[in-house]
């Protein structure tokens, strides 16, 4: 197995054409190893979310090479790209993006339902994942009955339930207070980091930097330096 979950070489992304063109990614060279938690940090507007979307296959790059889990993403078309995401990626969003009409357990079960699981089996599995994240008693709650931290934990469960090999998170703590943010990151580290899996977290919340194995600093459309926190995360 390729030890690198993500490999970007000279990746470019430009929005629009002609005079309105905005060059957001300007030659990103970047790798994300398995078995670790990698943070992508940098000033606002430098292109972090854009890079994450490209890596997750939600945006097409305008130039460069991108391999995710050993597959050149450019080779995937339409339906196979969707299926690749469904099987191999887990998503965590800043605004949680839970479906308000589904219970916590049903929300966590969505990737399995999308894969064709029976609802009962999927919800049972979701309940056990939620239990690992300390939400055993809230499985039947609706999202609007949960606190922000609890909602984000449901979102973690949704990202983890189908055991993907790459988890992408965009600002997972910025809608939470410091204490809750710290707590959910602790849980995420515990639950998500596995030898075969890479976790990529975009953030500019420096208080959670200690959770990272490595931190990639991005500026003006490029990854400028990658620092490894020697001896692993400091908390």
């Amino acid at each position: 197995m390729n030890p690198m979950a993500v490999q970007c070489r000279d990746l470019h992304k430009t929005f629009g054409v002609g005079e309105d063109a905005v060059k957001v990614l300007r030659g990103v060279d970047f790798t994300v190893p398995r078995g670790e938690m990698t943070f992508l940090v940098g000033p606002s507007g430098c292109g972090k979310t854009t890079l994450l979307s490209v890596i997750a296959g939600l945006l097409n790059p305008t130039g460069g090479d991108l391999e995710v889990l050993g597959v050149p993403l450019a080779s995937l078309r339409g339906g196979t790209a969707v299926e690749f995401r469904r099987k191999n990626l887990g998503f965590v969003f800043q605004q949680f993006n839970l479906l308000p009409a589904l219970t916590a357990a049903e929300n966590a079960a969505v990737p399995l339902l999308a894969a064709g699981w029976k609802r009962k089996a999927a919800v049972e599995k979701a309940e056990s994942v939620l239990a690992d994240l300390g939400l055993a008693s809230r499985c039947r709650a609706m999202p609007n009955q949960l606190s922000g931290g609890q909602q984000q934990r449901v979102a973690f469960a949704r990202a983890l339930i189908h055991e993907p090999h790459l988890i992408v998170c965009d600002e997972p703590t910025s809608a939470l207070d410091a204490e809750t943010g710290h707590h959910v990151m602790e849980l995420l580290r515990q639950a998500a980091v596995r030898p075969e899996r890479a976790v990529l977290v975009v953030t500019h919340d420096s208080r959670i930097f200690p959770f990272a194995d490595r931190i990639a600093h991005m500026n003006d459309g490029r990854v400028e330096k990658i620092e490894t926190q020697s001896g692993g995360p400091t908390c």
Binding site: V82, R86, F91, V110, A114, R158
Partner: peptide, 13 residues
């Protein structure tokens, strides 16, 4: 937004 999340997660059009 909900449909967007489903699309991202890997539900086909």
């Amino acid at each position: 937004k909900q449909f967007g999340a489903l699309k991202a997660i890997g539900v086909s059009d």
